[in-house]
Design a protein around this nucleic acid. Structure first.
Length: 924
RNA sequence: GCCGGGAUGGCGGAAUGGUAGACGCGACGGUCUCAAAAACCGUUGUACCAAAAGUACGUGCGGGUUCGAGUCCCGCUCCCGGCACCA
């Protein structure tokens, strides 16, 4: 018998028994409810798992284990996100092929996951690079293609010069590639896209139906970036003169503005009226328009340039050239001085007929809206800066309030609102701050003068629609998902370029298009895929038996991870990606756990695909993940030193990273210890292997659960691990000490016993603990789940310590407590639970036992502690029998000596009684 | 700038508007030991007081609602994460 926690003597033994018994094989029994719990599947890196990964896997494991014990059919799978850049880059670095390398790494991940006792059903595992899996990824590509959701087009795309491939917008952070950190360049090449924009509105709306962290939902809403406004066409004129005013235009006079809305389709015919579209969310400010801006890439620019002086043409060409050379990062840098050039043409403001100059400026992006704006410098900071720099007039749209002017003065006393307003009207550029509000009436806005945003916007929108020059429109920032990668290690795109250059899908029976086994697969770097240089792969007969070319781009890794949760439902199906029956049974995922860094990548793409599957009738759910939780990171102390003379720090670094060995060679004060995320490059990784070796798997599990709230970051400490060992040891000792009293048939016997005091107290603790642990696991409050267990162990010890001669009832209550403690411990510390279960003479596994149920009657206290306050301040506490009435309690409260001291000389005005909790006597 | 989240003892953190600091770590004192480690027992928010009793103060800051606020409302500060010239 073990009276302390000695993991080396039993943890491996139980892991072996679980495996032999296939304890975690998924069961599907009609009578039971299902529970689908899942972790983000990892890319298996050569560095192996750190305890940081365990912070993701252990809590999910606790939930799944409890759900199983509660009688659910549990699906708790794990697989590997094997395709993609990280794997390929690592293989290149190691001069090996990614396929065998990934197999080896995945095997190591599995070994480590087993080491900490995670209850995965390995029989359902797969890698996204398995042909039996990517066959169906290709099948889904074809599904998207057939539904008009996959297309190929020339586009200006993000090119990562380090990884030598294009990347999706979601993979770019602040102008740099998320993976390689390289500043991305623009490349104009044909690329494959998935039309996620078709689902923009649904992707926003359905966020309301799922239980996800607010932050992730907000990030997705932000990324999709919906805004409502008006898009309308403006005529181009080459004369600066003023035209007719708005009031002279009758509604219905469409002919005057009847021009081709798409500038690309316009012929450079001098007789033809040029025009361009703009999008605005503030149509109410249209009377304040004093210029227009086209992005340098705008298609209309050539046509305008063709009709202006040579001098202007030169300036335009030069400016466009300049803009081309800038990276997106430079171009969109904050506080960048505005640049631009006047085109020589004018736009006609449809609201008042005024001609305003059309400028070219790179602060207007070609990729958003129409690539052109109406500029209202009074109300828009960017437009104002531009107007100031290029000396363009500013027309006020609203009268700013006093506060607006006050910010330009040293004190309020100086403010003379009347004269400030007068000077603002003379020239708003004196105040370098744009002002616009929704609840301030418009000025100088024709018949809309005096209206507020809501009314003016609505009526101007109606007017523009009636005039036929535009419409109210919803605009999204979200752009289509760029899926092609010019890299080897990914899922081949199942498309053939026919002899005529037309696109043909590879016929379904011919799937999968195998990734060819090759010796050299390094990226070419010229924008072509390595597959393009493999003749046997490229050359292929097309549908009509003519020579065609295979598509040589592969799909980015996020394609593979956008449906794997469906494959887990039916992983060995050779005929379908998944069977309808299996998906209907298991989907949606009830609980999905992983890092917050995938907020707008994986999590958005997976939602998109699920919606497509729903529309195709392949699944019955609109959302894949019902509940999402993000675990906090595990941070480790990492040594840095101060930079020496001439050394520069990387952005965001606080010192020069040094190794732990190197740190020892420095004086104590010269080493800066910082908490940073565990990573191989920082040399601060603690592996589950070492943690298990030193402290045991269960101690590691309990520590990770207890140390902080689930979603908070954790500072790794061995002291905390030691505490966890101590706690488990206390349990072993406690159960060993109490075991002589243990009777296995306590359940039937207890019913006949009158409970004495220690027995009653013990049972109360038992049933309270069952309730709290169960609720807290469901609420993802694993730290308090562990606290309740600790408190429970303390209570059992305290009661046991006070009992001199144990009664029969007490012995039975102890028996109940022993079993309950072991079972409640089981999800968190399953090895110890099974070992203790065996120690008390049981056979089998706690995993197969029923989760304890609590009896509310037994959990109820029989005395209640009443807090007694005088004027809201605690003065005394009273122990009263449960069931004491209000009168009785208030009486006792008033009788308290301590209370009376504070009531002296005062009159009681009011007494508040909260049943079972508190009396507050209000007196003065 | 915008969007999200947060701020509670020496530390990690508990707390359906109702006794703030559960549980743990650390620290201090003790038991055991030749000694140490481990283990066990006790103390541990701050101030006043020799101590106890007691009193006052106390959940980032300033107001408010309430019999009662860590919790709700208004206005700030700082920290973390995300987005950012998106018209």
């Amino acid at each position: 018998m073990a009276d302390r926690y000695e993991p080396s003597t039993f943890e491996s033994k139980w892991q072996q028994r679980w495996a032999d018994e296939e304890l975690f094989a998924t069961r599907e029994e009609e009578a039971r409810p299902k529970f689908y719990g899942m972790d983000f599947f990892p890319y298996p890196s050569g560095a192996g798992l750190s305890v940081g990964h365990c912070r993701n896997y252990v809590p999910t494991d606790v939930i799944c284990r409890m759900k199983y014990m509660q009688g659910y059919n549990v699906l708790h799978p794990m697989g590997f996100d094997a395709f993609g850049l990280p794997a390929e880059n690592e293989a290149i670095k190691r001069k090996t092929h990614p396929a065998p390398m990934i197999d080896q790494y995945a095997a190591n991940y599995k070994r480590q996951m087993d080491l900490v006792g995670i209850s995965y059903d390995w029989s359902r595992s797969f890698k996204s690079s398995d042909p039996s899996y990517y066959k169906w990824t290709q099948w889904i590509f074809e599904l998207l293609y057939k539904r008009g959701l996959a297309y190929r087009k020339m586009a200006s795309v993000n090119w990562d010069p380090v990884d030598k491939t294009v990347l999706a917008d979601e993979e770019i952070v602040g102008g740099r590639a998320e993976r390689s950190g390289a500043v991305v360049e623009k490349k104009w090449i044909p690329q494959w896209f998935f039309k996620i924009t078709d689902y923009a509105q649904q992707l926003i709306d359905d966020l309301d139906t799922i239980d996800w962290p607010d932050g992730i939902k907000a990030q997705q809403r932000n990324w999709i970036g919906r805004s409502e406004g008006v898009q309308f066409t403006m005529k181009v004129s080459f004369e600066a003169e003023r035209g007719v005013g708005h009031t002279e235009l009758g509604v219905g006079e469409k002919s005057r503005y009847d021009l081709d809305a798409d500038p690309e389709r316009q012929t450079p015919n001098a007789e033809r009226q040029l025009g361009f579209d703009v999008f605005t969310t503030r149509i109410d400010t249209i009377f304040g328009m004093t210029f227009c801006v086209l992005s340098p890439e705008h298609a209309l620019v050539d046509q305008i340039a063709a009709r202006v002086s040579l001098e202007r043409q030169g300036a335009i060409r030069e400016y466009r050239q300049q803009a081309k050379l800038l990276t997106d990062t430079d171009r969109t840098a904050v506080n960048r001085e505005k640049t631009g050039v006047f085109t020589g043409a004018y736009a006609v403001n449809p609201a008042n007929g005024k001609h305003v100059p059309i400028w070219l400026a790179d602060y207007v992006l070609a990729t958003y809206g129409t690539g052109a704006i109406m500029a209202v410098p009074a109300g828009d900071q960017r437009d104002l800066e531009f107007a100031v720099k290029f000396d363009i007039p500013v027309t006020p749209i609203q009268n700013p309030p006093k506060e607006f002017f006050a910010q330009f003065l040293k004190s309020w006393e100086e403010l003379d609102y009347e004269s400030a307003l007068r000077s603002y009207h003379e020239d708003p550029r004196r105040y370098p701050q744009a002002y616009v509000a929704k609840d301030v009436p418009l000025i100088d806005a024709g018949e809309y003068t005096g209206m507020l945003f809501d009314e003016a916007s609505r009526r101007l929108g109606e007017w523009i629609e009636a005039l036929g020059i535009g419409e109210r429109k919803v605009q999204y920032k979200l752009r289509d998902w760029l899926i092609s990668r010019q890299r080897y290690w990914g899922c081949p795109i199942p498309v053939i370029h026919g002899a005529e250059g037309e696109l043909q899908l590879v016929p379904e029976p011919e799937l999968p298009v195998y990734l060819p086994p090759v010796d050299h697969y390094e990226p070419a770097g010229d924008g072509s895929s390595p597959l393009a240089h493999i003749d046997e792969f490229v050359n292929v007969c097309d549908r009509d038996g003519r020579l065609g070319r295979r598509e040589t781009d592969t799909m980015g890794g996020f394609a593979c991870s956008s449906w794997y949760f469906l494959r887990f439902c039916d992983p060995h199906n050779d005929d379908e990606a998944w069977s309808q029956k299996a998906a209907d049974y298991w989907m949606p995922v009830d609980c999905y756990v992983g890092g917050a860094e995938h907020a707008v990548m994986h999590l958005l793409y997976a939602r998109f695909w699920t919606k497509v599957f729903f529309d195709a009738g392949l699944v019955k759910v609109r959302e894949p993940f019902l509940r999402l939780q993000n675990q906090g990171q595990v941070l480790a102390l990492t040594p840095y030193r101060k930079p020496k003379e001439g050394e520069k720090l990387d952005i965001g670094e606080e010192g020069i990273l040094i190794s732990f060995d190197e740190a020892k060679t420095y004086e104590e004060g010269d080493v800066l210890w910082r908490w940073s995320r565990m990573s191989k490059s920082k040399g601060n990784v603690v592996t589950p292997d070492e943690a298990k070796e030193q402290y045991g798997a269960d101690a590691l599990r309990m520590f990770l659960l207890f140390v902080a709230p689930f979603n908070a970051d954790v500072n790794w400490s061995s002291e905390g691990m030691q505490g966890s060992v101590r706690f488990l040891s206390r349990i072993f000792r406690l159960i060993t000490d109490l075991q002589p009293l243990y009777e296995s048939d306590w359940r039937t016997l207890l019913a006949f016993e009158e409970l004495d005091n220690p027995a009653k107290e013990l049972r109360r603790a038992t049933h309270q603990t069952i309730q709290r642990c169960t609720e807290d696991i469901d609420r993802f409050q694993f730290n308090t789940y562990v606290s309740w267990l600790m408190k429970y162990v303390n209570s059992i010890s305290d009661v046991a310590g006070a009992v001199k001669s144990p009664s029969r009832a007490y012995g039975l209550a102890v028996s109940e407590a022993i079993e309950t403690l072991i079972l409640l411990l089981s999800p968190g510390a399953p090895h110890s639970a099974d070992e203790l279960w065996e120690q008390i003479g049981k056979t089998g596994f706690t995993y197969r036992e029923e989760w304890p149920a609590y009896d509310p009657k037994l959990a109820t206290e029989d005395t209640m502690t009443i807090a007694v306050q005088v004027n809201g301040k605690l003065r005394d506490t009273l122990d009263m029998a449960v069931g004491s009435g209000e009168a009785e309690v208030v009486e006792a409260a008033k009788a308290s000596k301590k209370v009376q001291t504070h009531l002296e000389g005062k009159t009681i005005r009011k007494v508040i009684y909260i049943p079972g909790k508190l009396v507050n006597i209000v007196a003065n």
